[in-house]
Amino acid sequence: MGTGKYTSGRYLPFGDSALLVEFGDTIDLDVNRKVIALSKAILKARIQGVEELVPTYRSLLIRYDLAKIGYKQLVLRVKDIESELKESKLEAVRRIVVPVVYGGQYGPDLSYVAQFHGLTEEQVIQIHSGREYRVYMLGFVAGFPYLGEVADEIATARLETPRLKVAAGSVGIAEKQTGIYPCEAPGGWQIIGRTHLRLFNPQMDPPALLKPGDSVEFQQVSEKEYKKIEEAILNGTSGAFWKE
């Protein structure tokens, strides 16, 4: 406990049908890289009985079918795969650009975040859109990406009282994480902007625009541009915001 990154995975039983492999107890790039690398390697190994893999910040959940593989047998197979993971820092990642209109009615907490850090709103926007973020995991509501890491200069604690409704597409900050609300939901993140990108569509497979391990960049657009895009989507003349 409290060691941050582990030297090798901790193998933990998760009830009668799942195994959890933990690589650390912290939000950390190396930890998450190991999670994603192991997830990919297990998929590639096509272990019979492995039903579903759920990568998160710091662990991989492996759901399995007891009729096809036992707990001990699965642990041995996965440990073998883990031991053969290459220490490669180069992952093949998808890069996705997310257009955002910052501030005003779209980002009601932008002014608070700026004030809190003694910055101008424009500076907050530059810092937020000035780096690449990693999709550490999806959760909270379907398609919600947890992105990291936010620069210390703009990292801000959640609202003391969460909002009952945060609009779909809202881009928020919570400490060193940033995220995008795929649908209207209650939430306590500091909302600084909004995107028209549709992050989740259950009629598509995969249903989420982003997946763990992806790289995301925010790009500022003006309100005018945002409205133009919104109108185009409503008119059905532009729907090309879904790409795999």
Binding site: E52, L138, A142, P212
Partner: peptide
């Protein structure tokens, strides 16, 4: 609905 937990789908 199995297989979509990693996308946040219960």
């Amino acid at each position: 609905r199995y297989g979509y937990l990693k996308y946040g789908v219960p």
